[in-house]
Simulated assay, not measured.
Amino acid sequence: MTKIAIILGSTRPGRNGEAVANWVYDIAKQRDDAEYELVDIADYKLPHLDEAAPPSLGQYTQPHTKAWAEKIASFDGYVFVTPEYNHSTSGALKNAIDFLYAEWNNKAAGFVSYGSVGGTRAVEHLRLVMGELQVADVRAQAALSLYTDFENFSVFKPAPHQSEAVGAVLDQVVAWSGALAPLRATSSDTAAQ
């Protein structure tokens, strides 16, 4: 069965992302089209990138990198839950993404973002990063406003239509993850030779 990670892309104390990621995961668990797992980057305690070799070489030496690589490699697609900080994603999420390369390749990604303008600028940045990592990003996006989907900018109360937006993201990520399976199989066969 297709495996999709819902990646919580903030490590900030008191982060709004935890409520958002749990909400996305609750929506996903009601579906039977894939196996979903919530992955919190905070659990991996990744320092600033501390591998000597570029990630594209796959020569990981640090135990935290190896654990992160194993987890990310186990999925067929991803839904990134990202805040928007200064017109971009969180530094913690960008750092976590930058630790790896091949583990991301030939998979699909969707985005659930939050911020003053729905986190849309963070997603635009992430779409560029995904392209470099050979990740197919889907069109659907759930963009949550701090003004209308949070009370006092901190208590998560999503508008009803946002559940439909998440459903569309999941639909596309699952479909594209399945469509890319032959590419992943070819890459695995080539790596084994």
Rank of each mutant, 00 (worst) to 15 (best):
S116P: 01
K3M: 07
A67H: 09
A96N: 04
Q59H: 12
N105S: 11
A28F: 01
P160F: 06
W68T: 13
K157M: 13
A21V: 10
L8I: 03
W68L: 07
A109Q: 05
R139V: 15
W23A: 05
Y25I: 10
E151H: 03
V24P: 02
P13E: 04
N105E: 12
L126G: 04
I97F: 00
R12W: 01
V81A: 05
A122Y: 00
L128A: 10
A181Q: 14
V166Q: 03
S10D: 01
L183T: 06
N106L: 12
T120P: 09
S10H: 03
E84H: 03
F150W: 03
E124Q: 06
S163W: 04
A142M: 11
N106M: 12
W68F: 06
K29I: 03
N105M: 13
K3A: 08
G9A: 04
S188G: 12
D171N: 05
A19E: 08
M1G: 11
V155S: 12
P54R: 08
L38R: 01
G9F: 02
F153H: 10
A168E: 10
A140G: 03
D171K: 00
N95R: 01
T148P: 08
N95C: 04
Q193R: 13
K29C: 04
E84R: 03
V138N: 08
A34E: 00
L46V: 14
A21K: 08
D76P: 15
V166A: 00
D189R: 14
